[in-house]
Each structure stands twice: as C-alpha cells, then as structure tokens.
Amino acid sequence: MANVLVFAESRGTDLRKVALEAVTAGRALAEKIGGGEVHVVLAGPPGIGAKAAQLGQYGADVVLVCEHAGLARYAREAIAATVAERARAGYRAVLLPFSAQGRDLGPRVAAKLDAPIASDIIELSAAGESITVKHPGYANKVIITLALSGSPVVLSLRPAAFTPKENARSARSESIAPAADPGAERVVVKEIIEGAKGKLDLGEAPVIVSGGRGLRAPENFKLIEELAAAFGNAAVGATRAVTDEGWRPHSDQIGQTGRQVSPQLYVAVGISGAIQHLAGMRTSKTIVAINKDPEAPIFKVADYGVVGDVFEIVPALTTAVREAKKGH
C-alpha cells in the first residue's frame, strides 16, 4: 500500500491554511491509491510541534516534526533536503502548495529525487499506475490535463483549490532532524520587509477588493481599503496600471503576471478588465464591477455590474456593507 508525503507550510510557529489544504488533498489521494497513510513533514522553530494535532484532524496519520531554531524562516536548502530525504523512504507522491514557498521548494525536491513534477494543480486523480492532474496553463486560458509516470511524483497544489476537510486520525508524532544544517544555507535571508500587519493574503482572502486606474491617485485607495475593512474578510488587490504607477506594491498585482486568485467575491473598482487582468481573477466565484464606462470589458465577466462614478458608488457601498454586516 502506497503512502503519501505532505509538506505542511508554516510561518514561524503558525500553520498556513495551505498546509491543511495539502493534507486534505493528500488524504483524498491516499484513499484513491488504495488507502495508504498520509505522512506530514512539519518543519519550523521549536514549538511548531504543537500543530501536529491539527494536522491529524485533517487526515495526517504520522506527523514528522522537524524543530530547529534555524527554521524560524523558510530555509530553502535545509527544507528541500529534509523533504527529499524523507521522500526517499518510499512514497507514491509528495504534495505541497503552489505558494511562494512551495513554488521554490517543489522543483528542488523533484530534481533531488529525479521525480516528475506538476505545478499549480486544481484537480487530482489517480487511476491504476498513473496520476493525472488538471493545471491551468497559458495564464489560466487553457486547462491542461497532465499524466505523470513514475514514483514518487511531486504535486504542487493551487492555494484555495482544495477545501480543507476534517477527517480526524489519531496522528502519531515522530521527531526528525533536518537533513542539512539550516545554519549553512548558501542563500541567506537578510531581512523581511513586512507588509501591513494583520493583512490578509490575496491567496487566502475570501473577498478581494481591487482598484484600477479609475481611482486616479494613490490616496484614493483609501476608498478601497475602507470597503475591504467593511467586509472584514477582504484583501486589497490592484491592476498593473496601478502597480506600474507605484500607487500599490507589485505584490498586490492581480493578473497574468501578478497573482492568480479565486476568492468567493471579487470587487473590481475602476478596472477596465483587460485580458491580462481577467487572467488572474476570472475564476472568482462572484464578480462585482464598478466602472463609469458601460462598454468596459469587465462588465462581460461581472455577475453584478454597476455603471457610474467610483467616488459616488464606493462610499455608498461601504456604508451599506457595514450595515449589512451589523445585521448578522
């Protein structure tokens, strides 16, 4: 019976939501290939081991806890060596998220193992000897079905494409040592420049309020931030026109060359809806567009379009959302 290895992404001593998504997907894959075990690598600074029970709730059978003071930040070489060494024990697949960390880690592990890898997976299936995945390529314009042969395979999952599901197992914890010294990294992190505190990540926020050139000036993003705050569970995004102008950081950019997101609700404010922008958000569940030009292409994908001036509509919407939230 083949087992599945999952890398649980963390930051400091916190698990990230993508870790639970990967464990959930790992559990489902293990069932599909005959009911093997799910083993999870949980690496971080001392104290991270406390999160093992939570991984058990989502379907981990064994949690391999790797605590080391040098793992307070993502230590790419040590983590890749540790996951690869563990994977050599014989697994059918290694699962990790297609997050900033996972995008860095996945190909390292695949190359170390000489294993095939598929990225940014939105669907996962297994039949007989082969593992098949769906992956949006061509900047989300074409859905590609890929077959991977060989064992193990490395599978990198699109954030938010797999919904965490509880499936409690009584996970055993085992402590492991890093396979390479985190103090000997060749790529050394000198500084982390934190964004605004408590800010939701675009990949994880259920609601995204995004602003375009229609806002006219950086200070007007205050309107976008207030609307996001009224929702309470929203992150702020932007178009490339806006990040090119330096009104917002590049990390806020949504689209073909920025972040690709699929929130429950995407509110596009003063955004024309260029094809490269749509490439990053067209898979959102519900799309709202506010634009003064009724011919703007964004209205072709908006479930609810409102034609008019953002400076009139957004403050009214912010007040109404605040009221609606109060009613709950």
């Binding site: 964004i298 209205f299 908006a302 609810y304 379009g305 409102v306 509509i313 919407l317 109404a320």
Partner: peptide, 14 residues
C-alpha cells in the same frame, strides 16, 4: 455579465 443599475442608487440592489 449583467449590469444591475446605475450610480449609488444601485447599491441597495447590489
């Protein structure tokens, strides 16, 4: 896509 209204007057329906 569907346009549901014009200006702030469309906010309650939205």
């Amino acid at each position: 896509g569907r346009i549901i209204g014009q200006g702030a007057a469309a906010v309650p329906e939205l």
